[in-house]
Design a protein around this nucleic acid. Structure first.
Lengths: 206, 206
DNA sequence: CAGAAACTGTACTTGCGGTACGGTTTTGAC
DNA sequence: GTCAAAACCGTACCGCAAGTACAGTTTCTG
């Protein structure tokens, strides 16, 4: 890894923390480079503009997040052969991980971008959209495996249920931040878990 | 109503649309006043700074939203005496209202503020927090009424379930915007409805 | 050692939020 | 109709942040 790459990483790390804390618009380049210990020229050597910074931040964020979810859901499958049990275990693990983050979940960059639409170019917006689609597909796949073994009682659209996971997490992050109460995120994941449990393990109506 | 109040209303309406579309930081005062047909001096006559604008926008938004929810949940209670049925009907109505918005739900101002924290002063942030708390209390109250008649099968924390409503809506708005698919919001409300139905009307496990 | 990569420094442009302040029109109460 | 307050307009200005331009310098690497 060249020295340039290390600097880029440092910039991205500092910028991500600042953006999640204050929003993209409120994060100035001056502030980032001051903390990173380089000059404006140095910054624009690595990123042609703020949009390029956003793009790389997103790529980084999505990658890290995917890794986390891969780990957690793989761990769930290790702990149970039943796909429903595996998913429920993973959700519990996810809740614990989210609760253990010292100052709550740092926030969701995708949502941050969402509420700043026009600040970003098409490429950035397409990147966020694709990552959400990937997320949904991931959960959809898990739910398919569950439904094959445990047919849901009520006619539930599995696509919508997969979407629900992302919605809950994003919504809970917002609530955690707004109310300054990190525990909400954990609790929302657990109540979603209860819903999944009910949907797939409820006995049939006579 | 004085002429000043009418102007203030016009500014707030234009600003709200712009902020929901592009975020607070990306909405310039110049742009708002151009559309409102007045000058910078005129703007600062009504709002001492951008924060004051945000504050009044939020008050307006929360008020309008509360009114909408009051109507919908009152209508639900009109249509059924059973609190569970009334709530389920209201959720269906809510989903329909959200689906009927021509370009999807305009977005949630609270979330917009959430991701711009440092741009706003303490008063604005406290306003958003309070409105979320009020929202949650509203749903908690409805759920209390339901649980009194239909004890939930699994031990479900009603506070968390009340929170879930807000989380779903906020999360679904983000997803709708990100994927440019207004139907997601409607579908998420309906699947939340299914969950509520399952929780309160599922038969006991033998 | 050479050349490429990784910067620094300075100077400038643009756009936005915000201030200052004097002047002008509009409105509503008497 | 009068008169003061309310509701503006115009102009000029400040500071900050994004971004450009470009020449020069250091640092790594083959």
């Amino acid at each position: 890894m060249g020295k340039g790459e290390a600097t880029r990483e440092r910039i991205l790390e500092i910028a991500e923390a600042a953006v999640l804390a204050k929003g993209f618009g409120a994060t100035s380049i001056d502030e980032v480079i001051a903390e990173a210990g380089l000059t404006k020229s140095g910054f624009f050597y690595h990123f042609k503009d703020k949009n390029a910074l956003a793009r790389e931040m997103l790529r980084r964020y999505v990658k890290t997040n995917d890794q986390l979810f891969d780990d957690i859901f793989a761990r769930g499958r290790q702990l149970s052969d039943d796909p429903l049990q595996a998913f429920l275990i993973s959700l519990k693990l996810l809740a614990e991980v989210m609760a253990d983050l010292p100052n709550g979940h740092p926030g969701c960059l995708i949502a941050s971008v969402c509420y700043q639409e026009r600040l970003f170019d098409r490429e950035v917006r397409e990147l966020t959209a694709q990552s959400v689609r990937d997320w949904n597909a991931r959960f959809r796949h898990i739910l398919d495996g569950i439904a094959a073994v445990h047919p849901p009682r009520e006619p539930i659209d599995l696509d919508d249920l997969a979407d629900m996971m992302s919605c809950i997490v994003d919504g809970a992050i917002i609530m955690s931040k707004t109310l300054n109460d990190p525990s909400r995120l954990e609790r929302q994941i657990l109540i979603f878990r209860s819903c999944v449990k009910l949907i797939f393990s409820a006995p049939s109506l006579s």
